[in-house]
Design a protein around this nucleic acid. Structure first.
Lengths: 143, 143
DNA sequence: TATTGTTATACTCTATAACTATA
DNA sequence: TATAGTTATAGAGTATAACAATA
C-alpha cells in the first residue's frame, strides 16, 4: 500500500491563499464608491486611536512598505480625510489625525464593510465566524 | 451611550489579509532551494491528477491569469519538471504531465511544505487546524 | 549614528489586446 | 463563432537607494 498523497486542497495554507484571492476583490468592490481601496481603508480605519499614530507606526502594524505609505497618506490627505500634524516632541514624525470628512468617510466605509463581511462570511454561521476569528488571532499573535 | 466602534482587528476579513501577508513569505522561504515560488508550486502540485489538466483548467482552479500561466508552465517545463503534450481529441489544448524530475521535485516541495505548515500553524492545535481548514473549505465552496 | 519621512528610479508583476491554431 | 495557447506591451505596483530634517 502506497502512502497517501497530499493534495493541494489539503493544505490549509493553500486555502488561506485562495480565500485571500476571493476576499480582496470583494473588499475593493465594497469600497469603490468611497474612492478608497483596501489599503487606504485599512489606513483610514487605523488612524482613529487614543494616541495618533505616525506613518511608520501604521507601516509596521499594517505591513505596508514605509515608502508606499507616503503615497497612501498623500491620497487620504488630498481627499481631505486625514491631516498630517508634526509631532511636537519629535519633529521628524507626523501625527496622523482624522479630519471631519474622514470621520464621515470612515463611517460610510464601515457600513460598506459590514455588508461585505456579512456577504463574504455568509456561508458560515455567526459562531463559526467567531471561531475563525479567534483562530486567526491566535495565528497572528507575535507576528 | 455611544455605539461601540468597529476596530480593524475585529474585522475577520482584515485578519485573513494579515495572515496572508505573513503566510506568503513563509511559503516562498520554504521553496527557494527548489527554484520554485508559491505559484509554480501550486501548479506543480495540481498537475498530478487522474486526468492531466490543461493550462486553462489550472488557470481557473488556481485563480491565475491564463497569460501568466503560460510563463509559469514555461518555467516548470524548462526546469524539466513537467511536459506539454497535445491533447489528441482537442489539439488546441496541452495536457500537462509530471516529468520524472517533477515527481522528485514535487516530493521535495511537499516535504518543505510540511515543515512550513507545521511551523506556520504551530500556534494552534491539530484539532484547531482541522476546524480552520473546514471553515476555509466552507467559505471557498462555490467560489 | 539612527530614525522619520520623502523622492526618484528601477524592477517586477499583471492584464489587455491581438494573433494562430483548432473546434 | 468560440476556445486554447501565445506574444507583446502598457500600466500598475513595489522596493531600493539616496537624501533632508531631526533625534
Amino acid at each position: 500500500m502506497t502512502s497517501a498523497k497530499t493534495t493541494l486542497t489539503q493544505r490549509t495554507g493553500f486555502l488561506v491563499h485562495q480565500l485571500h484571492c476571493v476576499l480582496l476583490p470583494a473588499i475593493e468592490d465594497g469600497l469603490t464608491d468611497l474612492e478608497l481601496d483596501t489599503r487606504s481603508y485599512f489606513v483610514l480605519a487605523s488612524i482613529d486611536q487614543p494616541t495618533p499614530p505616525s506613518q511608520q507606526d501604521l507601516a509596521r502594524s499594517l505591513r505596508i512598505d514605509p515608502t508606499t505609505m507616503v503615497a497612501v497618506v498623500d491620497q487620504l490627505e488630498s481627499l481631505g480625510y486625514i491631516t498630517r500634524m508634526r509631532n511636537a516632541s519629535d519633529r521628524r514624525r507626523y501625527d496622523l489625525h482624522l479630519a471631519p470628512a474622514g470621520v464621515n468617510a470612515l463611517a460610510r466605509a464601515e457600513k460598506a464593510m459590514d455588508v461585505v463581511e456579512e456577504d463574504f462570511f455568509g456561508p458560515i454561521s455567526a459562531s463559526e465566524k467567531r471561531s475563525l476569528h479567534r483562530l486567526l488571532e491566535k495565528l497572528l499573535a507575535n507576528r
